[in-house]
Design a protein around this nucleic acid. Structure first.
Lengths: 208, 208
DNA sequence: GAATCATAAC
DNA sequence: GAATCATAAC
């Protein structure tokens, strides 16, 4: 089996990677992305294999699926906001969570990304990672299903967008062109300025 | 001027990058490496340009230089141990600080590395970084000057060592072969187990 | 030295 | 998707 079906394990095998699962019901499983590209990065996987193998850009023509997924998204958004507050001391609203699909997914099982818009993660390692979430390569859930003729249905065009688009800082809009290393440093700075530098830390040495 | 002479600025221009300088006298300047490969990573630069352009493997035949450098090393070691304690809450002894030169330096101005043996740094990004400090590519200061016929004088051999040696964990000796990503994850784990997980942290939100 | 890009093999 | 390796251009 190709790496392209790695997500199928979560659907087929209820005991596979239980620690990665953050929500589950009869129709969906929600997991932590194994290589999170931001502070919080989840994937919603519909369990129905007939649905799972379809194209994410058109499968949401299925109204029941679309509505069920919408409900899951709402629930998971709340979960994320809570975890941001409790675990990361980050107070944000729903808009901070970006929801949608990659126009050209590498993984073949249908998965909807929920990702916080900080892009502060050591797993974010190159331009294509960044651009896959910050250009039109990323298709917002509200835009689904795409209509016939939508340019985002053209995989070659979208791949090119991901590969060749300039890198724009999501915090301040500055254009980092092809300078990923500089962008990366800047993202860390922006994140720390916004969240971390507001805190004062006290370290206490534990007595063994 | 090639990037190979980037360090020369520190020698020629007393006001260049003052923040990077951690020690300075008439004969030497010690700077923080711009891309530190461990918690603390300094470079000792002799200021004399006639010395600076010579081969690090043989230049320490000059007894005065060798003794002067030895004294600087002792002083800087103490500085590093203090900074480890005060700034990083790390209690270690002199052996924790590795001192020497690269057998094939990329930078042409003579520089002696002082690096802590944790190799916990986001700037450590690939096998050649790691191997340049953990194989015989790294020549300990006590071995200098090398004697005629020492294999480490052969640049091609040493480049090959750096490129092709297996990656061995400096903490536990485990062989990570060519798996840099795994080694990297493991180094973080080892570092945290050894230093960070001993501490209990309390975060206090600052009142604006 | 860093950094971008392309390319296998999984 | 990740990860290793090689290769320009600075």
């Amino acid at each position: 089996m190709s790496f392209r079906y790695a997500l199928e394990n979560y659907i087929k095998n209820p005991s596979f990677e239980k620690e990665a699962r953050v929500y589950e019901d009869d129709k969906f499983v929600v997991i932590k992305d194994g290589f999170p590209k931001a502070t919080i990065h989840y994937l919603i996987l519909p369990k129905d294999l007939k649905i799972s193998k379809q194209n994410p850009l058109t499968v949401f023509k299925n109204k029941e699926l679309r509505e069920d997924t919408s409900k899951i998204i709402s629930q998971i958004r709340e979960k994320i906001l809570k975890r941001l507050r409790d675990e990361f001391n980050i107070e944000e609203d729903e808009d901070f969570i970006q929801v949608g699909v990659h126009s050209v997914p590498s993984m073949n099982n249908l998965h909807v990304h929920l990702v916080t818009r900080d892009f502060n993660s050591e797993r974010l390692k190159h331009k294509q990672h960044y651009n896959s979430f910050t250009t039109k390569f990323f298709v917002n859930f509200e835009d689904l299903p795409l209509r016939d003729g939508d340019e985002r249905l053209d995989a070659d065009t979208m791949e090119k967008v991901k590969k060749t688009s300039d890198q724009i800082c999501v915090y301040c809009g500055k254009n980092y062109k092809n300078k990923f290393a500089e962008l990366k440093k800047h993202l860390t700075q922006e994140f720390n300025d916004k969240y971390k530098n507001k805190k004062r830390k006290i370290e206490v040495i534990e007595i063994d």
